[in-house]
Write a protein that binds this DNA or RNA. Sequence first.
RNA 1: GGGUCGCUAGCUCAGCGGUAGAGCACUCGGCUUUUAACCGAUUGGUCCUGGGUUCGAAUCCCAGGCGACCCA
Length: 514
Amino acid sequence: MQTIFTPSILSFIMASDDLRATRLEKAEQLRQQGLQPYAYRWEVTHQAAMLQEKYAGLPAGEEVEVEVSIAGRIMARRVFGKLAFFTLQDETGQIQLYLDKKRIEVTMAEDTTAFDRLKQLTDVGDFLGAKGTVKRTEKGELSVYVQNYQILTKSLLPLPDKWHGLTDVEKRYRQRYVDLIVNPEVRDTFRKRALITAAIRRYLNDRNFVEIETPVLQTEAGGADARPFVTYHNTLDMDLYLRIATELHLKRLVVGGFERVYEIGRIFRNEGISTRHNPEFTSIELYQAYGDYNDMMTLVEELITQPAQEILGTLQISYQGQAIDLTPPWRRITMNDAVKEQTGVDFSQFSSLEEAKSAAKAVGIKAIDDCDSIGRLLNEAFEQTVEATLIQPTFITDYPIEISPLAKPHRSQPGLVERFELFIVGRETANGFSELTDSVDQRQRFEAQAARKAAGDLEAHDIDEDFVTALEYGLPPTVGMGMGIDRLVMLLCDCASIRDVIAFPLLKPEVTGE
RNA sequence: GGGUCGCUAGCUCAGCGGUAGAGCACUCGGCUUUUAACCGAUUGGUCCUGGGUUCGAAUCCCAGGCGACCCA
């Protein structure tokens, strides 16, 4: 019998640790028996959860003479002399394989090695296909009573301890595939994430919103206060920036005649990493012509409660031990009133910055030396005193114009804009406003931004001339909104860290030392 | 950026100045109703890296790496 191992592979095996070498040897033995350790296909007729559901009422000890064919990964092996129980896991769940030496040998064309092969050449981690009948064992475990089987993929590396599992968070993030194999709740989170984004898309599509993709690579990143990633285009010989928002392009689409547009896509911000920040994350932004920020707050309520109701089946959720009631309508309160409520200071009454600063200091607002306007001071006071208290869903409205360069001036309150942010569990969850449609005003706001950038503000941006030109052609009255999908999923799936809702979060490379 | 904690066998962990350990997994033997199967035997190590102190360092000290959490 010829070996398929080349000398270099053999030396690799010899140099490998025993665990891998042992399994490679088993794969080779399979080949020598004329069997393929890496099969091409397997006809699957049933999945574990289907069988568990369908035969939930099958009494212990009874067999159903139906033929089922399943496939999955071996998660546990309990092997006796002439009998074995394997736990097989597929995408839907687990089911036991009841492996009886006599039955397997009879049905597999009197193959007297078929059972021994299972005992000797399979390991936890291997993929196996199995056909047989359905039987609930004497001990009450629903099983596939196997008639024949095939090893589909030989696994070379051992899975984590079946009892303690994989708990090392670093390893879980670096080798998410292992995390997914052994931690069912992790699979569940990503499945829910997919359902949430699907529900959001369905909600918007049903209301005639059109999803349009806008550029990730841009010559100037704008639409938010954030530092961009810089990359380089070889043949154009120029720096390009990864987008920090989708806002300015989506509004161009509204100028172009799309009255309802949105985009769910990846955003990149060159900032620190924390339990709430990953350098790349997913946002949804949507724009609706002829509406204002009041309309959008109502839409946001639906956009969040519909998926919640659909996927969780309730609006009474729990986040890290805190009870959250998502039942709309949600409280709406202006930023000024919220700060007044919390501190007793009414910032709208001040006519000078000095007056406002001393009042702020008197109630313990810190680090206000850099605030160059009452509006910025109000925002600082809000962040320091109110934000963390907003546990139940709350819309904070009517923001200072200085910190909202793309929002429309308030129709009745000078110095403010028609903007809202949604807070849940003390975190900013969504941000929306009646869009600034006056191109002259927009140019002036951009110029103020550019001045801040020139003064050293790394999160400020230059004038986007083409965007101003688009506004000059005319943007209808429009309301827009942006929301972090990752944070929404964290909320709905009760995840403490953003890394729990991103399949492959950014980590520094591991130093292997080899 | 600052602070606290962690890094020891494939996994989960103990050991805290004197010969590197346990459980599970692996390997071998036994076993036709197990489900953390069981019984017996065996195997497995860059104690994150690099310096230092010491007769002797996984352990103490310094620097660095990676990660977690908290703060900014």
